[in-house]
Design a protein around this nucleic acid. Structure first.
Lengths: 410, 410
DNA sequence: CGCACTTTGTTCGGCAACCGAACAAAGTCA
DNA sequence: TGACTTTGTTCGGTTGCCGAACAAAGTGCG
């Protein structure tokens, strides 16, 4: 997986084989800063061992000594810090109708950001070219001295089979059949490329930088063109037996509901997708001549803005959506008992205007006290969440296997 | 945790600390029989290492040499076998209105079996006494020479918080508040005691001995007095953030349905629990004067028997139950993408008479092809499944930590 | 201020797990 | 029969990690 690419740079620094170097690296990353003695205490190893591992880790440039900490009654510790800027990561969000790219450091800080609308569904080659272009723009904007990123993460609006990640998108985007986006990116940038479903990566972003920090069991729901859930179980993304866990867009919530493209009746997607919300808004316009949207041809953004301005009609659409989402979320709570439920996608902008009716809808459908106790909240990561999650995926992979870091050899 | 009990038996045999002895033991258990060379190949260790570990494992009596295997072109291997009879386990199923106890060997074979009806809900002390009595009966029946079991597993019809397993049952059985069933059993038998929810343990039994052998992601639904699900994820029981995952009895499947004891409307439990099925049967009796049940006061067993005899009225009740179960199962499929769904509890006796309408109900509510591909099947473990699962829990714990085996010291 | 006590980080000798090479025993195949 | 394989054991060597000892650099009390 590690590309033995063309650039023969400074001699790779050897990393100890043992999982211990790994553990130490990840520990320092999490704590941001820690002394050798503290690492030893927390990992249960001796100070001598940690001292030796740290001394082998220092030349990699991933960690460094950053001054001294407070005394605990004796000699002051030398603090070891993680070098967030030691490398960078490209995170790409391939949406249904747009491509966006984030360049991040190793702490999830977005250094550069590009977004462009594009007919992704119909144009695989153009999409790959656009993703490459935006990625290069991000790298160039950081100056000529900036090295290659350590890896690329890609989010796609489709289930990804962990067994064969190259056969992505086909199911939802037939035009993509046989086009190898990942291979194109790897060829262009010469670094490892990782893919996953957008909802899964959104969940990952929340787990590291958002509302789910410290929570290892939660569900992330992304409401966008489609609806998907990312399930984090015991700190890891859960994919199910065949990689399609969380595909909740076609859960039936009303056997008497309208027919869906999938052939069934009353799917969640027929009530809460971007398309459905806009249609519903337009249908209601005649009943609400006083709405700020009256006389316009609203899109999803206009609907959200109107709701944020407390327009009664927009709020009615949101309440209906909340009720329908609530049915599904109640099912998730009863079945999986997550510690938290987090809503992402553009609808998350609505904050309490969405959460409040949603909480009511859920409360009427859950029994077990502790299940009902899981908080339901909106994401605050905004429109960059998915791309950030894609970058985070690369970071997580590297911390679990430091051989991925440039200039570090296992 | 290892009881340094009264009986001072033959000097404990020391087991190597390393996880390797563990790995070897579990490997031999799984394969039933294997040569040293094969263990070395499969675990990635050298033959010399494995040879040494095996030689230290042999005196524990957990494994033994059992003849020689087929040559692969050279010297014939000496086969190492796991001694299933090296110890025994007590598995106890505490139901809503009965107690049953199984004594098993280390291969899940039920050596002895006792079951008695009892007012569990109202009588904690009597229940503990009964469980003890049945356990002792099982042990006595194996002859005086039979040693103590290596541990006791207990299944309870209630969520179990993994953090504080002693506060069980309270939520569902208020009379049990402050009564320490586990402590009583440990005191009486002098061996470690483990508890878990009955549906979770049913899933464990299926995973080891039933329809889910080899499947690491599946859902087990137990239909009895209550309805519960045991979720196996990546080979481990999933408990959720607060230990109540799988409590699906109160998932709302019809907002216009009857009121439930929990205060909501249309809970699954109001349609499919033992009580609900019996009530529904009795209500239908007047419409089906020709039913074999006409003129009787049927219970759940009579209903199942009638369905097995293809009585139209009983089949109608089953079909309705299947439809309602199907709604919930469809939700499970869409959300979690399990590799299989297995139905347990007494209703599983019905086999295809239940599965066939159930499959139809589910098919109308799931989209993603691979999700719909998960097979739905009935358990074949019968009424002993839960007690067997409780015993299996102890076995799994011991294979992960051989110090639990009697006469083996870590 | 001086002195006893802590804590940190390093050095060094040693233990235990594990490996590879070598070998005898017990097979297969041409 | 002889060349080649595979198995299981022995034995010396490497390696990851520990504990003890120590110097450096603190704190706090009399």
């Amino acid at each position: 997986m590690t590309s033995s690419g063309p650039a023969k740079r400074s001699r790779p620094v050897a990393l100890p084989d043992g999982g211990l170097a790994n553990e130490v690296l990840e520990f320092v990353w999490r704590r941001r800063t820690a002394s050798r003695a503290e690492i030893a205490r927390r990992t249960g190893r001796s100070r001598s061992t940690i001292s030796e591992v740290v001394s082998r880790l220092l030349p990699t440039g991933l960690i460094e000594e950053v001054g001294s900490g407070e005394s605990r009654g004796g000699r002051r510790p030398i603090l070891i810090g993680f070098r967030d800027g030691a490398s960078s990561i490209l995170g790409m969000d391939i949406g249904a109708a747009h491509v966006s790219v984030a360049l991040t450091d190793l702490r999830g800080r977005i250094l550069e950001w590009r977004r462009r609308d594009h007919a992704v569904q119909a144009d695989p080659r153009g999409t790959a070219a656009l993703a490459t272009e935006l990625g290069e723009e991000c790298l160039a904007a950081r100056g000529t001295g900036s090295p290659r990123p350590m890896g690329i993460g890609v989010a796609v609006p489709s289930p990804v089979d962990p067994g064969s990640p190259y056969r992505i998108l086909e199911r939802i985007l037939p035009a993509w059949h046989d086009f190898d986006l990942l291979g194109a990116l790897r060829g262009r940038f010469g670094v490892p490329v990782f893919v996953d479903n957008d909802a899964n990566l959104g969940a990952l972003a929340e787990h590291h930088w958002g509302k789910a920090v410290g929570i290892d069991d939660f569900a992330y729901l992304k409401v966008a063109t489609g609806i998907g859930a990312g399930l984090m179980i015991d700190g890891e993304i859960y994919r199910g037996a065949t990689g399609v866990a969380g595909e909740i867009g076609h859960v039936a919530i009303d056997p008497r509901g309208p027919r869906c493209v999938c052939g069934n009746r009353g799917c969640l997607a027929t009530f809460v997708g971007t398309r459905a919300l806009v249609d519903r808004t337009r249908a209601l316009l005649c009943d609400f001549p006083g709405s700020v949207l009256a006389g316009t041809v609203p899109d999803i953004r206009a609907l959200e803005d109107a709701a944020l301005a407390d327009d009664p009609m927009a709020l009615k659409v949101v309440r209906e959506a909340a009720r329908n989402l609530g049915i599904v979320i109640a099912g998730v709570l009863n079945l999986m008992n997550p510690g938290s439920v987090i809503l992402g996608g553009s609808l998350a902008r609505l904050g309490d205007r969405l959460i409040e009716p949603l909480t009511r809808a859920v409360a009427g459908r859950t029994l077990v006290a502790s299940a009902a106790a899981s908080e339901i909240r909106t994401s605050e990561l905004g429109p960059r969440a998915t791309a950030l999650g894609a970058a985070t995926h690369v970071l997580v992979a590297a911390l679990a296997n430091p051989a991925l870091f440039p200039g570090v050899k296992a």
